[in-house]
Nucleic acid binder design. Structure first.
Lengths: 196, 196
DNA sequence: ACGGTTCTTGACCGCCCAGTCAAGAACTCC
DNA sequence: GGAGTTCTTGACTGGGCGGTCAAGAACCGT
């Protein structure tokens, strides 16, 4: 598509994306219909297809924006830190802070994981995030700060902990983001046996 | 529904559930239609509705069976062990072994997590599994085997690691189940700083 | 005030969906 | 072989879906 948009057009587009995000987050991709989205904004169906090629493209757009935004926040958080372990920790905390603010986008990422059509797009973004962590792990291993283990495994394990505790404690139980981040960091660093 | 079924009927029912499981696992819940399921078995649509009330009920049935089966396998694996930490480890390994054999069912569980209609049923099963782990963690804390942390947090963290590494390494990368289990256990016990 | 562009409308299209049902086939038991 | 039950068929219904499009409204720059 890629139309030339006026300010008014940009606003409509943003409005569509915002509302669609909330509907997708609440019900999932398939149960959310285009008719529902436009009805929710009180506009005709043609508006949707003026700004987006398809429902699928809209979803991918939202997904891409969310991943980009999250990554930027993480980068900003660690830019001033040199210690690789602290970088990992700050990355986790930045991710948790982002998840607290962007619940809907976080849910969308979950949905994307279970839809074949979005799996690839999602994986691309996630691979980038994991690669960042892997870099820090390798550095830490080289410095003798942590024991020598497969960095990919460790990175994915940390992602798993973070994602799961975010869902369970931040979203479902309503804990404070900072507390959940503390728990994630503590578990990732020491497991259950360590002295952390 | 709950019909009185002959052996022939039982077989058909199993056949439907098995085929539906593979389709659901491959495409997800919504994209899999009842017509597709019956067509795949070469039978008329009425057959489906003779054995099940609805597509949703079928999915819930499959989900329930899977969770029950997984839990039974875990219980069997730890029944002879008294050390709580070893029980946790054996539970993880049993879960990984189950996931290796039941890829489709594992995927279904993932899908269930992103569908409001199945979230509750899923959570019920998962809470039971977590409660088991929590019990062992509490016991281990009481025995002074591990440091004193919130058992719920630790249990969920381990579930998160296990689920994520299963997906990433067992399913996507095709690693051996035993190796993945080793990685999960090692990370859960020692984190990245421990001497594991 | 006019011509060009951007944006909006909502009826409409073809398609596929979950679910129904009257009819009949296949078993079972006597 | 007949009566009763279990199982199967597949056309059909009603409805919602994603997406289209001709028509027109709103907003330019000049």
């Amino acid at each position: 598509m890629t139309r030339r948009l006026t300010q008014r057009g940009q606003d409509r587009r943003d409005q569509l994306m915002a509302f669609a995000t909330s509907r997708f987050a609440e019900q999932g991709y398939h149960p959310t219909s285009v008719s529902e989205i436009v009805a929710g904004l009180g506009v005709g169906k043609g508006v949707f297809y003026w700004y987006f090629d398809s429902k699928e493209q809209l979803f991918l757009e939202i997904l891409r924006e969310a991943q980009t935004d999250l990554r930027r926040k993480q980068q900003q958080a660690i830019v001033d830190e040199t210690d690789p372990i602290r970088r990992i920790e700050l990355g986790i905390r930045a991710s948790m802070a982002w998840s607290e603010v962007h619940r809907d986008h976080n849910k969308l990422i979950q949905f994307a994981a279970t839809e074949a059509a979005f799996g690839e797009a999602l994986r691309r973004g996630q691979d980038i995030a994991v690669a960042d962590v892997v870099k820090h792990v390798k550095e830490a291993v080289a410095l003798g700060l942590i024991r020598d283990t497969d960095p990919d495994v460790v990175a994915h394990a940390m992602v798993g902990v973070s994602a799961h505790l975010t869902r369970t404690f931040l979203y479902e139980r309503g804990d404070r983001a900072e507390d959940v981040a503390d728990a994630v960091v503590s578990f990732c660093l020491h497991g259950i046996l360590g002295q952390g």
